[in-house]
Simulated scan of single mutants.
Amino acid sequence: MLNAAIEIAFVLIGAALALNVYRLLVGPDTTDRILALDTLGINSIALLILYGISTASSAYFEAALLLALLGFVGTVALCKYLLRGDISE
């Protein structure tokens, strides 16, 4: 039962990734593209966690945590660049 749920989650998150890539490429505005990039990172984290559950390995959870930290810092840096034109003050 758990394996079927994990497989369904893989398919649905994969579809969400495809839709995020579409929004990233076609997005009408820069803010939409930044939001799509952030959501792409969140969905990648979800895929890593699902893969970690399916293989029963804790290394993927650590990789997901690292990706979450990097995604947050990247999103903040891009938003700060859009607002002020400079990342460092």
Rank of each mutant, 00 (worst) to 15 (best):
L35F: 12
L78I: 11
A63I: 14
L35A: 15
Y60E: 03
Y22M: 14
L67D: 02
L12C: 12
V26W: 11
L17W: 03
D32L: 05
T39Q: 13
G14R: 13
G74W: 01
T55D: 06
A9E: 06
L66D: 02
I6H: 03
V26G: 01
L67T: 04
A64P: 03
V26T: 11
D29A: 13
Y81N: 06
E89G: 09
G41W: 02
V73Q: 03
T55S: 10
E62W: 10
E89S: 08
I6N: 02
R84G: 02
G41L: 09
F61L: 14
L82A: 12
L25A: 13
A4R: 08
L78D: 01
I8F: 14
E7Q: 11
A4D: 10
I13G: 01
L17H: 01
G41E: 06
L50S: 07
V11M: 09
G71V: 04
Y51C: 08
A15F: 14
A68Q: 01
A46F: 06
R23S: 04
A16Y: 09
Y81Q: 09
L50C: 10
L24F: 15
A56V: 10
G41D: 05
V21G: 00
L12G: 04
L24C: 05
T55R: 09
L48V: 10
G74I: 02
G74V: 01
A5F: 14
P28G: 15
E7N: 11
G14E: 12
I49Q: 07
I13D: 03
I8M: 12
A56M: 09
A56W: 04
A4T: 11
N43F: 14
Y60G: 02
V73T: 11
G27V: 02
L67Y: 12
T30W: 07
L82N: 07
N20L: 15
L48C: 10
L12F: 13
I34G: 02
A46M: 13
L2S: 11
V76R: 06
N20K: 04
D38N: 15
T30R: 15
L17P: 00
G71Q: 06
A46P: 00
L50P: 01
I8P: 00
R84D: 04
A9V: 02
S58H: 04
A68Y: 00
S54R: 08
G71L: 04
D29K: 13
T75V: 09
I34H: 05
L2H: 06
F10R: 04
I45L: 12
L2A: 15
Y51N: 05
L12W: 06
V73L: 15
T30S: 12
L66K: 05
N3K: 11
Y51P: 00
L35S: 06
N43P: 01
A9D: 02
R23F: 07
L48Q: 04
L66S: 10
